[in-house]
Design a protein around this nucleic acid. Sequence first.
DNA 1: GATTGACTCGTACAACGTACGATGCGATTT
DNA 2: AAATCGCATCGTACGTTGTACGAGTCAATC
Lengths: 232, 232
Amino acid sequence: MAAKGGGAQGKGPQWQAGSVPSLQQADSEPALSIERIVATAVELLDAEGVDGLKMRRLADRLGAGAMSLYWHVDNKEEVFDLALDSVLEYRGPPQGIEAADWRGAIFHMLEDWRASMLGHPWSASLLPRRALGPNILSRLELLGRILSGAGVAEADLNGAIWSLWNYVIGATITRANFDLSDDDMAAAQQRLAHLSEKYPTIERARLLLDNDWDGAFRKGLDFLLDGLVPRQ
Amino acid sequence: MAAKGGGAQGKGPQWQAGSVPSLQQADSEPALSIERIVATAVELLDAEGVDGLKMRRLADRLGAGAMSLYWHVDNKEEVFDLALDSVLEYRGPPQGIEAADWRGAIFHMLEDWRASMLGHPWSASLLPRRALGPNILSRLELLGRILSGAGVAEADLNGAIWSLWNYVIGATITRANFDLSDDDMAAAQQRLAHLSEKYPTIERARLLLDNDWDGAFRKGLDFLLDGLVPRQ
DNA sequence: GATTGACTCGTACAACGTACGATGCGATTT
DNA sequence: AAATCGCATCGTACGTTGTACGAGTCAATC
């Protein structure tokens, strides 16, 4: 009887944390586990980017055979899913009371979100393809709770949550994309040099060059919040 | 002397349109060309998604050998770049004068942008990884021109353009992601069913279920524009 | 001691991107 | 007319990838 379908039963990632330690090769490596796999996958992704994650390489880093991974994981996609969600954990606002300063709470959470993703740029390119993990859902839940407490009407809650989510995702993806490739940008400029007179406004605004990304992010967020919850 | 580096010289896509027709096999297939390759790639992407685009399959559809593609294109990545940009062409507002109704002009362009991408959902997942093509730049240029005309200060232009871009990208990617997978969503619900009490707000807002995406998009855009260019 | 179930891994395979070099063909040159 | 050249096509082959399959190990249970 093969192990087929035993460990990683069912479809989709198992969003779990608790598991039995139960190490059995006490000599060197601390035995395989989803946690270790995910942690190492994140390391590898940080070091080599999305294309650098290969099952064999991941197994090597873990001191295991390639096929051993498949006991804990259905396929490579699931590794991506788990790695992505693991990076998006939110530890909550520092000390501020969210009820009192809802605006601060939102800002903190969303800026932390953005920072988390920019700290692992591969996550931005992964996000569009992947499912909602529990950490993402937690953030959305928190967002909804704060907005609701801030006075957003029930009927508008959906639109408000999505608007903020959209904005954060968009800003992060854009930033991660251009951050990864400062020379790509230069190359683009080069490549389009002879067309540059077609884009005078972009040229004038130096849109592609010097940018206060963080400031722009905050400002746009401010506008959005002003619209969602008018200052009294 | 091999053809190596002859046709697709240099690095990066050639953002060109004009080319000599010059068909030489007059019998059946109208000869290979970048235009034909890109058009067929888009077809294939529409039909099979990002993972469905393989060089061999693309060549088959074109009635050509796989390696023939490489005369016109450096590698598969370039096919993605070209396909993405080709989908993002903007034909301009219908009849409205952009100077008079700048708000309408912006809305039209951005909604068209979003619609273009949703019409080819693969484009949303491709965008984070790819470079700026001329069609994207044109849209940004137009956006900047309109905003500038609407009274946005030179110093704020950058932030304003990026805010809108971010919002559109984020909204589109989110929507495309969830649209692709209505059953993924159901599966996610299922998978997280036992955790559902952890997300009461999401539950209550039915965030994952019924959504007026278009309405939410417009509303958020309104808020953003109100912030960027206060109504007098 | 036999059985079971959790876990590991060596081998093998099919599919993929694409390097390489041969080939064909029209236009240009001699 | 013959030779040359540049554009374009494609058959073959290689290296790399994800992963199916089944054999193997070991601890716990009966």
